[in-house]
């Protein structure tokens, strides 16, 4: 289990990580999502002890990264953005070096290296110089050193970047199988990947943690609380009063509509009640034909886009409108 406490990292005037806190449990896969420059890599670099935080701490198994860095690092395997490879070594020399540095006992070194090589499909290249390997293979060597010895916490910074589709599938499978017994934290900017692989999503933007939960939870939390309704009616007031009487309707605001005899409204609803059925029956009762009733069902992608859109409220964001609307019902 790894706990990140009030992490702050300041570069001069720029705040790269802004008071970030979260906990990652064993046996789960955590996806770190965020646009470029959001602070993902910085956070991971601090979690693994590569960088020192301006303030805050990382706690693993009750040990503090600040007080006992070597003790904490023993529990962590890390694949940075650029795999840290000594290109003048062969793959097996490199992994032997990594095993010695990780203080894996001599008797277990060979079997641990074999396991890591097997997991990352490196059997064919283990005798070759890293200098001569392609990017995909280099990435896998980097991955092999991260999972070597199977530390409890495995942190991967964009592990699938630069790989071909088959390799991406293999690495995703690898992450899934690792996730059964380890804490896996990986960053990505590919949303489908996160949705597919992760049990838990952390969205960060400008160094702040914006969302934290399972993909389903996030979708539920972000479920639209705004409906758009267009009815054929001449009296705005009458429709408004009718809607406001329904349970779950919080407010009703008129929307622009140039068509004569039509009324468009924006309905704000309570998050836990879905009033669409009631709206339908109420309109039918009042002989007010519904022309459109739109709600929003947000996918992870839309949640991500709306959360990370700058200077715009999620519900009104242009990005959000462009992608986020789904026609639920149309007459």
């Amino acid at each position: 289990m790894i706990e990140v406490r009030n992490l702050v990292k300041r570069y001069g005037d720029r705040l790269a990580v802004d008071n970030l806190s979260f906990t990652a449990e064993k046996g789960r896969i955590y996806g770190f999502l965020g646009p470029n420059g959001a602070g993902k890599t910085t956070t991971m670099n601090i979690m693994t002890g590569y960088l020192g935080p301006t303030s805050g701490d990382v706690i693993v198994d009750g040990r503090s990264m600040l007080e006992d860095p070597e003790g904490v690092k023993r529990f962590i395997g890390y694949l940075p953005e650029h795999p840290p490879l000594y290109i003048d070594m062969t793959v097996s020399e490199y992994l032997t070096f990594a095993a010695e540095l990780k203080k894996i006992p001599k008797s277990r070194q060979k079997s641990e290296i074999e396991k890591a090589v097997e997991y990352t499909f490196l059997q064919d290249v283990s005798g070759r110089l890293i200098r001569n390997l392609s990017k995909g293979y280099r990435q896998r060597v980097g991955l092999a050193q991260a999972i070597l010895g199977f530390p409890e916490i495995i942190i991967l910074d964009e592990p699938t970047v630069g790989l071909d589709p088959k390799q991406i599938m293999e690495i995703r499978d690898l992450i899934r199988s690792l996730g059964r017994e380890h804490t896996v934290i990986f960053s990505s900017h590919i949303l489908s990947e996160v949705q597919e692989v992760c049990d838990h999503v952390l969205i960060i933007h400008r160094g702040k943690l914006l969302a934290n939960g399972t993909p389903e939870e996030l979708e539920r939390q972000m479920r639209n609380t705004t409906l758009e309704l267009t009815v054929r009616s001449s009296s705005l007031e009458q429709v408004k009063n009718m809607l406001l009487a329904l349970p779950g309707v919080v407010s009703v605001v008129e929307d622009k509509n140039d068509q004569p005899g039509q009324v468009s409204l924006k309905i704000e609803t309570a998050p836990d009640i879905d009033p669409r059925d009631d709206i339908f029956y109420a309109c039918a009762e009042n002989r007010t034909p519904i022309l459109t009733l739109r709600g929003l069902d947000m996918s992870l992608e839309q949640i991500f886009l709306s959360l990370t859109a700058d200077n715009v409220q999620p519900a009104d964001s242009s990005v959000f409108n462009q992608f986020g609307k789904q026609e639920v019902e149309e007459l």
């Binding site: 590569y50 860095p69 690092k73 840290p84 990594a98």
Partner: peptide
């Protein structure tokens, strides 16, 4: 240059 310092500094070695 090779960013291998990232390996050394994140391994359990001072």
């Amino acid at each position: 240059r090779l960013k291998t310092d990232q390996m050394l500094l994140t391994y359990p070695v001072s």
